[in-house]
């Protein structure tokens, strides 16, 4: 009855106008270039239909970067969320120095990717890096690797950096979510004799579902859009072994094939739309069921 008056559309307007005019419209307009031969060497932009898309799929080397991107998104999403949840549960209460520890675990989030990439290049160095040095010290020297120089390992080492960097972000969202769990329910369950795991699964997790949705969706999106970390750490190398789609797009831009590069990023966009909508559908359904 009072809904439309109390929840006025005028509240949506500022955010929407800003977003629509300065972000959505220009960037969707940009998609038009994927249908053109726009390139560095000529001034005229000619409409060429779907030729760029055909060329993208005809080039097998693009499949490596698509595969890398999908693996990267899958693996980092899961690990970031699981580690983030573990950290949040551990640092939610009880520990005296929790504030300090939270700051420490969140710190990587605020460091620019460029710095992170430079530091980890050093850590991963097979001869002078501290990772192999550490393995030697604890007697696991046999496991030391050329972490970013081995084409089979490079993308996985990149995932490691991303998890290192962003698990703390998941932690913060989970911590914020944990504040929504009513204390009384935990207390009541404690009196009923439920143990830690029971309480976690029956009470905490259902209340955390919105946080899980947020984290997973953001993890998958940032995983599929990954660029900075790989760019600063391996630049897609060695060879093109750790190349991800946005890096291919960037490199194609560098070469000057703007139309082709736009087509690639449109394809990534379509992937992202399908996967995100699918995830929102799945998560909102389970949220509704639980609620």
């Amino acid at each position: 009855m009072y809904t439309s008056k109390l929840y006025s559309w005028k509240f949506v307007l500022p955010a929407f106008l800003l977003f629509f005019a300065l972000f959505l419209v220009p960037n969707l307009m940009g998609f038009y270039y994927s249908l053109t031969n726009w390139n560095a060497m000529s001034d005229q932009v000619k409409f060429i239909g779907l030729d760029n898309f055909r060329d993208v799929f005809a080039d097998k080397s693009n499949f490596t970067s698509i595969y890398n991107t999908l693996m990267f998104a899958l693996v980092t999403s899961i690990f970031k969320a699981v580690i983030g949840l573990g950290l949040a549960l551990m640092l939610n209460e009880g520990i005296k120095s929790k504030n300090f520890l939270r700051t420490i675990f969140f710190m990587p989030v605020i460091i620019s990717n460029l710095i992170v990439g430079l530091i980890f290049q050093q850590i991963y160095n097979p001869d002078t890096g501290i990772l192999n040095g550490f393995l030697d010290v604890v007697g696991l020297g046999a496991f030391s690797q050329a972490w970013i120089a081995d084409p089979k390992l490079a993308i996985w080492s990149g995932m490691g950096v991303e998890i290192w960097k962003a698990a703390g972000f998941n932690m913060v969202i989970f911590l914020a979510g944990l504040q929504m769990v009513p204390k009384e329910m935990h207390e009541a369950a404690g009196i009923d004799g439920a143990n830690y795991w029971n309480k976690l699964i029956k009470i905490t997790i259902p209340f955390l579902l919105p946080s899980i949705t947020i984290n997973m969706l953001l993890n998958v999106i940032s995983g599929l859009k990954v660029f900075d970390v790989i760019f600063a750490l391996t630049n897609g190398g060695p060879g093109r072994a750790s190349e991800v789609v946005n890096l291919t797009v960037f490199n194609q831009f560098g070469l000057g094939t703007y139309g082709y590069a736009t087509a690639l990023s449109v394809i990534l966009f379509v992937f992202l739309i399908i996967i995100s909508i699918g995830m929102v559908k799945i998560f909102t359904r389970s949220e509704v069921k639980e609620g």
């Binding site: 977003f19 959505l24 220009p26 960037n27 307009m29 940009g30 999106i221 859009k225 992202l272 929102v280």
Partner: peptide, 11 residues
């Protein structure tokens, strides 16, 4: 539409 904004690449 806002959600789509999360994934649109910048031009």
């Amino acid at each position: 539409l806002f959600l789509i904004g999360l994934i649109v690449p910048m031009n």
